[in-house]
Amino acid sequence: LHIEINVNGLRIELHNVSEELAERIREILEKVDDREEARRLAEELIK
Results as ranks from 00 to 15, higher is better:
Gly9His: 01
Val32Met: 11
Glu37Thr: 10
Glu20Ile: 07
Ala38Asp: 00
Asp34Ser: 08
Ala22Val: 15
Leu14Pro: 01
Leu10Ile: 15
Leu14Gly: 03
Val17Asn: 03
Ile28Ala: 11
Ile12Asn: 01
Ile12Val: 11
Ser18Gln: 05
Arg11Asp: 05
Glu13Trp: 13
Ile12Ser: 01
Glu44Cys: 07
Arg40His: 08
Glu44Pro: 00
Arg40Tyr: 05
Glu44Thr: 05
Arg24Gln: 14
Arg26His: 05
Glu27Tyr: 08
Arg40Cys: 04
Glu44Lys: 05
Glu19Phe: 14
Leu45His: 02
Val32Thr: 14
Glu27Leu: 14
Ala22Asn: 02
Arg40Met: 09
Ala38Cys: 03
Ile25Gly: 00
Glu20Ser: 10
His2Met: 14
Ala38Val: 09
Glu36Asn: 10
Asp33Gly: 13
Glu19His: 15
Arg39Glu: 07
Ile3Trp: 10
Lys47Ala: 15
Glu36Lys: 06
Arg39Met: 15
Leu1Trp: 10
Ile3His: 10
Asn6Lys: 05
Ile25Phe: 05
Glu43Tyr: 14
Glu36His: 08
Val32Phe: 11
Asn6Pro: 01
Leu41Thr: 04
Ala38Ser: 04
Ile28Pro: 00
Arg40Val: 06
Arg39Ala: 13
Val17Gln: 04
His2Tyr: 05
Gly9Tyr: 01
Leu41Met: 12
Val17Gly: 11
Leu21Ile: 13
Lys31Ile: 09
Asp33Ile: 15
Asp34His: 03
Ala38Gln: 08
Arg39Leu: 15
Leu1Asn: 13
Ile25Asp: 00
Asn16Trp: 09
Leu1Arg: 04
Asn6Gly: 05
Glu13Asp: 10
Val17Arg: 01
Ile25Trp: 04
Asp33Phe: 13
Leu41Pro: 00
Ile5Cys: 04
Arg40Ala: 09
Gly9Lys: 01
Ile3Ala: 06
Glu19Pro: 14
Lys47Tyr: 10
Glu36Pro: 02
Ala42Tyr: 10
Arg35Ser: 13
Asn8His: 11
Leu14Ile: 09
Leu1Glu: 09
Gly9Thr: 03
Arg24Pro: 00
Glu23Ser: 10
Glu23Phe: 12
Glu23Ala: 13
Arg24Ala: 13
Ile46Val: 12
Glu13Ser: 07
Ala42Trp: 09
Ile5Arg: 00
Leu29Ala: 03
Leu10Met: 13
Lys47Gln: 15
Glu23Val: 10
Asn16His: 08
Arg39Thr: 11
Gly9Phe: 01
Glu19Trp: 15
Ser18Arg: 04
Glu23Leu: 11
Val32Lys: 02
Lys47Arg: 13
Ile25Lys: 00
Glu43Leu: 15
Val32Asn: 08
Ile3Ser: 05
Ala22Phe: 09
Ala42Phe: 14
Ile25Arg: 00
Glu27Ser: 07
Ser18Cys: 03
Ser18Asp: 08
Glu30Pro: 00
Glu37Lys: 06
Asn8Gln: 06
Glu27His: 09
Arg39His: 10
His2Trp: 12
Ile28Met: 11
Glu37His: 06
Leu10Val: 15
Glu13Met: 09
Ile46Gln: 04
Ile3Gly: 05
Arg40Pro: 00
Ile25His: 00
Leu14Gln: 01
Asn8Asp: 09
Glu37Ser: 04
Arg26Asp: 01
Leu1Gln: 12
Asp33Gln: 14
Val17His: 04
Leu29Phe: 14
Glu36Cys: 02
Leu21Arg: 02
Ile46Phe: 06
Ala42Asp: 00
Ile28Asn: 01
Glu13Gln: 09
Ala38Pro: 00
Val32Gly: 06
Glu30Arg: 11
Glu4Asp: 07
Arg40Ile: 09
Glu27Asp: 13
Glu19Gly: 09
Glu23Tyr: 09
Leu45Ile: 13
Leu14Asn: 00
Lys31Cys: 07
Asn8Trp: 01
Arg40Ser: 07
Ile12Arg: 00
Leu1Ala: 12
Asn16Thr: 05
Arg35Met: 15
Gly9Ala: 02
Glu43Ser: 06
Lys47His: 14
Leu1Ile: 14
Arg35Thr: 11
Glu4Gly: 05
Ala42Ile: 15
Glu37Met: 07
